[in-house]
Simulated scan of single mutants.
Amino acid sequence: MIQRIDSHQHFWRPARGDYQWLRADEPAVAPLLRDFMPEDMAPLLSAHGVSQTVLVQAAESKAETEFMLDLASAHGFIGGVVGWVELSRPGAGAVLERMAGHPKFKGVRPMLQDQPDDAWIACRPRPDAIRTLQRLGLRFDALVKPRHLPPLLRFLRHWPELPVVIDHAAKPPVGANDGEAFAQWRADIAAVAAMPQVCCKFSGLWGEAPAAMHGDVEAALRAVRPVWEHLLDVFGPSRLMWGSDWPVLTLAGDYAGWIAISEACIGGLAQSEQDDVWAGTARRFYGLASE
Rank of each mutant, 00 (worst) to 15 (best):
I78L: 12
D40K: 06
W206I: 02
P31E: 05
A181H: 02
R34L: 15
S46E: 15
V192N: 01
A42K: 11
F105H: 00
P150N: 03
G76D: 15
C123D: 09
T53Y: 10
V248S: 01
R284D: 04
I189M: 06
Q20A: 15
L136I: 10
P210K: 05
V277S: 01
P14G: 09
F11S: 10
T65G: 10
F67A: 14
R4H: 10
E218K: 08
P163C: 05
S46T: 13
Q52S: 13
A28G: 01
G268L: 02
G83I: 11
S46H: 10
L288P: 00
T132C: 13
A223H: 11
M213N: 14
V224L: 02
V85G: 12
R135S: 12
Q57W: 08
A169V: 02
D25A: 07
P14I: 04
D128N: 05
C199T: 04
H102F: 11
V81A: 05
Q113K: 04
E97N: 06
W258H: 01
A193E: 01
A256I: 02
P150C: 13
D216T: 10
R13Y: 13
P163Q: 07
Y19N: 07
F285E: 11
H230G: 01
G204I: 01
A58Y: 10
A74M: 13
P103G: 12
P247V: 03
Q274T: 04
A270W: 02
G287I: 04
G236Y: 00
G101M: 06
G83T: 08
L44Y: 12
R89G: 00
G204T: 04
F67G: 12
W84K: 11
M37K: 13
